[in-house]
Amino acid sequence: MPLIDASHDSLPCRFFFIALLELYELLGSITNFIKDVDPEPTPQQRAAIASLITASLAPEHLTTLHPLLPALPPSTLTPLLEQEIARHASNQPLTGGIDTSRYEALDAPASTNPTDYHSTLQKAYTSSTYLHTRNQNLALLEQFGKNAWLVGNAQLEDILRDVERELVDTRQQTEEVNKMRKAGQEGVRGEMEGLENAWKKGVRGVVETEIAAEGLRLEILRQRREGVGR
């Protein structure tokens, strides 16, 4: 592929830049013309326009929807969500929920009563035991959790392979049953066709017999009528 040795001072580039400058000047002149025809409104004119727009609006336009707008669908929120939305709209603090005071450090009671100190000490022992047990569980999880997770995944993979193997066996059995069914149908096709043809012939014979009997009955009736007429 040949290299491009032409510089920006080449003749096509000069024509391009000249055309670009002429276009820029043309756009500037059009902008100035538009400003001369329709100048920028003054602040007084803007205020007058805003007052006219406000006067043309209904007093309840900020609280009432336009008649052409469809009605809002009924709310499907639960009472708990509606309560939370109302709390957030009224800027009320969050109340209830999980009590986090059990995870906070206990302060010494204000009184010097030994009973209060004993109760606080019992709560501190309970909290310490809980945190110690939780720390042990987290340590065990950090030490053995990964291996337990891998073992669980391996067991799930074994179960998946067993299920896939059963699926393959079931499909093979289904195919074998279909082959046996098709082979059985092919084996008795001649017999079935013969029986069907015999049945058709039998039905045809019955119909022909009924037609002949009906014709004979009509012939007998005709002869009787002729005999009576004589």
Rank of each mutant, 00 (worst) to 15 (best):
H118Q: 14
A50I: 08
G187E: 07
R14G: 05
L80S: 15
L221C: 10
R171D: 03
L94I: 08
F16I: 10
A86K: 07
L106A: 00
S127D: 05
T112P: 02
A213S: 07
L26F: 10
I30D: 12
T129L: 11
L52K: 10
L121G: 00
T31L: 09
E196Y: 05
V228P: 02
F33M: 08
Q172S: 06
W149T: 14
A154E: 10
S29I: 07
N135L: 15
E25V: 08
L218W: 03
L221F: 09
L141V: 10
I30P: 06
A6Y: 02
A212R: 00
F33I: 13
M180I: 05
S101I: 04
A148S: 11
P114M: 04
Q92T: 03
F16A: 08
P73K: 01
R134A: 08
S75K: 06
L27A: 01
E175D: 07
L106M: 04
R222W: 05
G187D: 11
K200L: 04
L21Y: 06
L150K: 12
M1Q: 15
L57A: 12
E191T: 08
A198W: 01
L150S: 04
A58Q: 12
Y125P: 01
L195K: 11
F33V: 11
L121S: 05
C13G: 07
E166M: 03
K35Q: 10
A154P: 01
T129A: 15
I85H: 04
P39G: 03
Y125V: 07
Y24D: 07
P109G: 01
L69F: 08
N147I: 11
H8W: 11
H61C: 06
Q83S: 14
R217C: 02
F144W: 11
K201L: 09
G202H: 04
I49G: 14
N137P: 02
V163A: 05
H61E: 01
R204S: 13
Q155D: 15
E40P: 01
P41I: 02
G28Q: 06
G97Q: 01
P109S: 01
E208S: 05
L80C: 15
L27E: 06
S111I: 01
R46Q: 10
F15E: 13
P73R: 02
D158C: 14
L140I: 09
P79T: 00
H88Q: 12
E157V: 07
L221I: 13
L57M: 13
R189W: 09
G97M: 00
R230T: 13
V207D: 03
V188Q: 09
Q92F: 05
L62C: 10
R161E: 04
G184A: 11
A55I: 07
Q92G: 02
Q143T: 13
P73I: 03
L68G: 13
K200Q: 12
Q83M: 13
Q92C: 04
G184W: 02
D162M: 06
A212L: 04
A110I: 09
L167N: 03
E25W: 13
G96Q: 01
L216F: 05
A124G: 06
G194P: 00
G202C: 08
L68P: 03
S127E: 02
T174V: 03
V168F: 01
N197R: 08
L26R: 15
D169P: 03
I4S: 08
I18Y: 12
L69P: 02
G229C: 13
D5Q: 07
T133P: 02
P109L: 00
M1V: 15
T64P: 00
T54V: 15
Q155G: 14
